[in-house]
Amino acid sequence: MEELAAVFVARYNYWGVIILMGIGLYAMIAKTNMVKKIIGMNIFQTAIILFYISTAAKYGASIPIIAHGHGAQGHGIRAADYMNPLPHVLMLTAIVVSVATLGVALALAVRVYWNYDSLEEDEILNQIKAGQLNRK
C-alpha cells in the first residue's frame, strides 16, 4: 500500500495531464460541433503544456530568477536552488503557438459558418451531400 502511494505521489501530475489529454482528444473525436472541437483541441494542447511544465519542478528549488543577480555577477549560484528554466521557455512558445492555432481555427470556423449557416458537422455534411451552398 505504501509503495502504491509512493508511485502515486511521484507520478500523479503526469497521470492528470494524460487524462486531460484524453478529455481533449475525446472532445475532438466525438463532438460534432466545430467550436466544441476547437475547445477540445485547446484542452489537448494545454495538457501537453502542463506535461512539459511538470518536468521543470525540483524539490526545494525556487523560481528561476537569480536573487541579487544584477550586472553580470552570477558567482556562487547552485543549480539545485533554481528550477529548470528550459521547459518554461519551451512552453511559452507552445502557448503562443496554441493561441495562434486557436485564432486561425476560429477564422476558418467563421468562414464555414458563412458557407453553411451552421457549425454542426452532420448538418454541414448533409448540405454537402445535397450539393447546396448558400453563399452570403
Partner: peptide, 27 residues
C-alpha cells in the same frame, strides 16, 4: 471557395493533433 474552409478546418484539427503528438513524444 465552397468547401475549402471546412476541409482546411478538418486539416487543422488533424494537423494540430499530429504536431501535438510529436511535441508530446519530444517531451
Amino acid at each position: 471557395s465552397g468547401r475549402a474552409a471546412v476541409s482546411s478546418l478538418s486539416y487543422l484539427f488533424i494537423g494540430t493533433i499530429g504536431a501535438s503528438l510529436y511535441l508530446f513524444g519530444a517531451g
